[in-house]
Every structure is written in C-alpha cells, then in structure tokens.
Simulated assay, not measured.
Amino acid sequence: MKESEFWQRMDHHLGSGYARVWAMQHQLGDLGGRTVDQALADGMSCKQIWRAVAASLELSPSDS
C-alpha cells in the first residue's frame, strides 16, 4: 500500500481534518504504543499501520 492510499483511507474513515490529528495523538498497542505518525517515521509499512488502525477503529473486514 502506498502512503497516499493509506491517507485516503484515513480521511475516508475519520474525515480529512480529524485523520491527521488522530494520527498524531492516538497511540496504538499494535504499533508498540506508537502513533501513526511515529510508526511512519520509523519506517513501518503502511499496510501494517493500516491493519493496526483498522483494528483500533473496529472496522469491518470489507472496510479494511
């Protein structure tokens, strides 16, 4: 997954304004307690990060 697709999904599920705030502030256990922004900066794959986001938001498999 490209980073642009990742952000499109984030915007779709959280709204374009809130997605960036959520990514900066929400720590995810599946990412080792890191935020989305920290995980991206650490070089984690967007696909792995998206899976953690989808689990946190309790998205249905068809949405993730």
Rank of each mutant, 00 (worst) to 15 (best):
M1P: 04
M1N: 04
K2C: 12
K2R: 15
K2I: 15
E3Y: 05
E3C: 07
S4P: 00
S4Y: 13
E5I: 15
F6Y: 12
F6W: 03
W7G: 09
Q8L: 15
Q8Y: 13
Q8S: 13
Q8F: 12
R9Y: 08
R9S: 12
M10A: 13
D11A: 15
D11F: 14
D11R: 14
H12E: 08
H12M: 09
H12I: 07
H13A: 07
H13E: 11
H13V: 06
L14H: 00
L14F: 10
L14T: 04
G15N: 04
G15L: 05
S16A: 14
S16H: 09
S16I: 10
S16M: 10
G17Y: 04
G17R: 12
Y18F: 14
Y18H: 14
Y18T: 09
A19C: 09
A19P: 01
A19S: 13
R20V: 09
V21S: 05
V21L: 11
V21G: 01
W22I: 04
W22Y: 11
W22M: 05
A23I: 08
A23P: 00
A23E: 03
M24G: 06
Q25P: 01
Q25K: 06
H26D: 04
H26S: 14
H26M: 14
Q27K: 15
Q27T: 09
Q27R: 14
L28E: 00
L28S: 00
G29L: 05
G29D: 12
G29I: 10
D30E: 05
D30F: 03
D30G: 05
D30M: 08
L31F: 08
G32Y: 10
G32D: 00
G33Q: 03
R34N: 12
V36R: 01
V36C: 10
V36K: 01
Q38H: 01
Q38N: 01
Q38T: 01
A39V: 03
A39C: 05
L40W: 05
A41G: 07
A41F: 06
D42C: 10
G43Q: 04
G43T: 00
M44R: 15
S45I: 02
S45N: 06
C46T: 13
C46L: 04
K47P: 00
K47F: 12
K47N: 11
K47Y: 12
K47T: 12
Q48W: 13
Q48I: 12
I49D: 03
W50C: 05
W50T: 05
W50S: 07
A52M: 04
V53I: 07
V53P: 00
V53M: 01
A54Y: 09
A54R: 08
A54L: 04
A54C: 14
A55T: 10
A55W: 06
A55C: 07
A55H: 14
S56P: 02
L57E: 03
L57M: 05
L57D: 04
L57S: 05
L57I: 06
E58V: 11
L59T: 01
L59P: 00
S60P: 02
S60L: 11
S60W: 13
S60D: 11
S60T: 14
P61W: 04
S62N: 07
S62M: 07
D63Y: 07
S64D: 03
S64N: 11
